[in-house]
Simulated scan of single mutants.
Amino acid sequence: MAKVAKRIAAAREGLDRNKLYSVAEAVSVIKARATAKFDETVEVAVNLGVDPRHADQMVRGVCLLPNGTGRTVRVAVFARGPKAEEAEKAGADVVGAEDLVEQIMGGNINFDKVIATPDMMPLVGRLGKVLGPRGMMPNPKVGTVTMDVTKAVNDSKGGAVEFRVEKAGIVHAGVGKASFSEEALVENINALLDALAKAKPSGAKGTFMKRAALSSTMGPGVKLDVSHISVSASA
């Protein structure tokens, strides 16, 4: 425990907890303090001025990070016939129908993302209680219920990140790894912020992006300059 406390203290040394950093400054600070023995994930947390209990204030979408997530994503596709063949050719790790339902119901979930063609949704609907809590339920709003199976598989493996506002009005999303270059992380963060800005719901009033922070898995959080974000994200 003492070693952990010492590492945290070292990471916080020289860090101004009250300063609002630009995206580029924050990335530099976070990378310098990501000293764990594994490649830490860099995450953005944004507090939005919405109340997701109201349907017209829900924020949900998907962002294709230009430099990927740094994760190897395993994709499962519910499809039959030619679309199943298309999914296999696109590089899906698991493809099936009733057999895939049985696999999942049996607790064998060896994938990270689920895609389905529209005609398969009545079948996939049986898995709501299993896939829903894991955030894996296919949804047309984020492009995971689609006839364009090839694009969906490629996007999922290439860096597509889903975001959805939580009850407290906060959106969390991973934007890469600490091993990424500063330029790559900045590009990814700006892409996510741009996607969030474009996802502003009609019911949102007043300031949309209220607060934001950047952190790595084991490192301290750094506050981002929200006013700067709002301008650059909407540009």
Rank of each mutant, 00 (worst) to 15 (best):
S234D: 10
V124Y: 03
F38G: 01
A213F: 14
K151S: 09
F38I: 01
D16L: 10
D51K: 13
K210H: 09
L20Q: 14
R17A: 15
V114G: 03
E183H: 09
M209A: 09
G159M: 10
V101I: 03
P138D: 04
V94F: 14
A76L: 02
A97T: 09
L65T: 02
K129V: 08
R126D: 04
F180L: 09
E25Y: 09
V23D: 01
V149Q: 04
R134M: 15
R33M: 13
G135A: 03
M209K: 10
Q103Y: 09
P133T: 11
C63F: 08
D119Y: 04
T144C: 04
G91R: 01
T217N: 01
I109R: 06
K129C: 03
R74C: 02
I229Y: 07
H228L: 15
G49Q: 07
F78G: 02
K167T: 13
E183Y: 12
V59L: 12
M1C: 00
K223H: 14
E25G: 09
R12C: 07
L224V: 14
N154D: 04
S230I: 14
F38C: 02
R17W: 08
K31E: 11
K151F: 04
E86D: 14
V59Y: 09
V77S: 02
I109D: 07
M218V: 06
P52S: 14
K141V: 07
T117M: 05
L193A: 07
E86G: 05
G221F: 05
P138H: 05
D148Y: 00
A173R: 05
L100K: 09
P220T: 13
M209Q: 12
A5W: 00
A55C: 03
L65R: 01
S156H: 03
A212Q: 12
N47S: 13
G135K: 00
K177V: 00
T150K: 15
I229K: 07
L48R: 03
G61D: 05
E13G: 13
K6A: 13
T146G: 03
M105N: 12
V42K: 08
